[in-house]
Simulated scan of single mutants.
Amino acid sequence: MTIIPWVIPIRLVDLLEIGLVAYLLYKLYLLMRGTIAVQIFFGILALYLIQVLVTAANMTILRALFNSISDVFVLALIILFQPEIRRVLLLLGQNPLIRRFVRSPAQEAMIGEVVAAVAEMSKRRIGALIAFERTTGLRNYIETGAELQAKVTKDLLITLFFNQNPLHDGAVIIRSQRIEAARCILPVSTSMSLSPHLGLRHRAAVGLTEQTDAFVVVVSEETGHISVARNGELIQNITVNELRSYLTEALSPQSAAETEPAEV
C-alpha cells in the first residue's frame, strides 16, 4: 500500500494574502510602538489566553463571565484603539495610489482661492492670519471668534482682513474647506528662538503650531511677505508658488509623522 504524503496546495493568492497580512501587522506595530496601546494589546491578549484555559478546564462560572464580556469585546476594541485605527486609515489615505483616486477637486479649488487671496493681500500689504485645521481639533480657538460657516473665496478672505473690517484682528480658521470663524484668538509663542522683530501675527502662528498640528499662513502688514508655520517652525518670505506647494502638502492625508513638502 502506497502512502501519499499530505501536501498543502499553495496558490499565488495565498502568498499575496500572507504578504499583505504581514505588511499590515508590521505597519500596525510601527504605529503602536511606544504608545499605551501596546500595553492594552498585551492585556487583551492575556485575557484571551485566560479565556482559552477557562474553556479547556470547563470552569462554568468563569466561562459564562467571559462569554458575557465577549458580547461587547469588539466595541471595546474599537473604543480603546480608536487613535490607532484612525492613524491606520490616515496611512492608507496617504498612499499615492489611493490619493490619485480620492483627490478632491473642491479642496484644490479652495487652495486656489486661498493662494489668490494671499497673493493679493501680499501685494496690497494687508495683514492676514489663516489657520487650517488638520487632525487636531481647533474648536477651543474657533469659539473665541465670530462664527461664519462660509465658503472659502478670495474676495471673502480679503474682505475679512481689510483693516476697516471689525473682524480683521485675529485669525481666520478653516476646517473641511469652510471658514469656521474669524477674529479668533490664538496662543502666542514665547519661544526665545524666534526673532524679536516678529510681530504678534507670526508669534500666534507659531504658538498654535506648537500646541496643535494646524498649518498657518501669515501675511505681514509691514512688508507684505508671506510666511507659513507648522510644527512650531516658521518659514518666512516664501513665494506664491511655494505657498501652493506647502498648502497642497499640508492638506493632503497625513500620517502622524509629517513629511517635508516637495521642492518648488
Score class of each variant (00 low, 15 high):
Thr136Pro: 00
Gly43Trp: 15
Leu30Glu: 13
Gly43Lys: 15
Leu53Lys: 13
Ser227Thr: 14
His168Pro: 00
Val264Asp: 05
Leu247Phe: 06
Ile10Phe: 02
Met1Asn: 10
Pro253Ala: 03
Tyr26Cys: 03
Ile3Met: 10
Leu77Glu: 00
Ala150His: 10
Leu156Glu: 04
Ile111Cys: 09
Leu208Ile: 05
Val218Pro: 03
Leu160Ala: 04
Ile111Ser: 09
Val38Ser: 13
Arg87Ala: 15
Ala181Ile: 03
Ser122Trp: 06
Ser70Gln: 03
Met59Lys: 09
Arg63Leu: 04
Phe66Pro: 02
Val21Cys: 03
Val74Ser: 00
Ala22Val: 07
Arg178Ser: 13
Arg201Leu: 03
Ile235Cys: 07
Leu45Ser: 15
Ala128Tyr: 08
Leu200Asn: 11
Leu167Ala: 12
Thr159Glu: 11
Gln149Arg: 15
Val206Glu: 01
Ala37Val: 04
Thr209Ser: 02
Pro196Cys: 01
Pro253Trp: 01
Val118Leu: 05
Val218Ser: 09
Ala109Lys: 08
Tyr23Thr: 11
Gly224Thr: 12
Ile126Cys: 04
Arg178Trp: 05
Arg125Val: 02
Ile79Asp: 01
Ser176Ala: 12
Ile185Pro: 06
Leu30Ala: 06
Leu16Glu: 02
Gly112Val: 06
Ala205His: 02
Gln164Cys: 03
Ser70Leu: 01
Glu222Lys: 15
Gln211Arg: 14
Ser220Asn: 13
Ser191Met: 08
Pro196Arg: 04
Val219His: 12
Phe81Met: 00
Leu157Ser: 03
Tyr29Gly: 00
Val21Ile: 14
Thr153Ile: 14
Leu167Met: 11
Leu62His: 09
Cys184Gly: 05
Leu198Asn: 07
Leu157Trp: 09
Leu90Arg: 05
Ile126Ala: 06
Leu49Gly: 11
Glu143Ser: 13
Gly43Glu: 10
Lys151His: 11
Lys123Leu: 08
Asn67Asp: 12
Asp155Tyr: 08
Thr159Leu: 13
Ile18Cys: 04
Ala56Ile: 14
Asn163Ile: 11
Leu92Tyr: 14
Tyr48Asp: 12
Phe101Ser: 01
Ile10Asn: 01
Ile50Lys: 09
Gly19Ile: 07
Val264Thr: 12
Gly170Phe: 03
Ala146Val: 15
Gln211Ser: 03
Met32Asn: 04
Thr35Lys: 11
Glu258Val: 10
Asp14Ser: 00
Asn163Tyr: 13
Thr60Asp: 05
Ala229Arg: 03
Val52His: 12
Leu12Ala: 01
Glu84Arg: 04
Val74Tyr: 02
Ile173Asn: 01
Asn241Tyr: 13
Asp71Tyr: 04
Ile158His: 08
Val152Asn: 06
Leu80His: 05
Gln177Ser: 05
Ser252Lys: 06
Arg175Ile: 06
Ile98Met: 04
Thr212Val: 02
Ile179Arg: 12
Glu221Gly: 15
Val52Asp: 08
Asp14Val: 00
Asp169Phe: 08
Ile78Met: 00
Val7Trp: 04
Glu233Cys: 10
Thr248His: 08
Ser68Leu: 14
Glu113Val: 09
Glu17Gln: 00
Pro96Met: 00
Trp6Leu: 01
Ile36Tyr: 13
Glu242Ser: 10
Val38Thr: 15
Met32Ser: 10
Gly112Trp: 12
Thr223Gly: 07
Gln149Trp: 13
Ile238Arg: 06
Gln236Arg: 15
Ile238Gly: 03
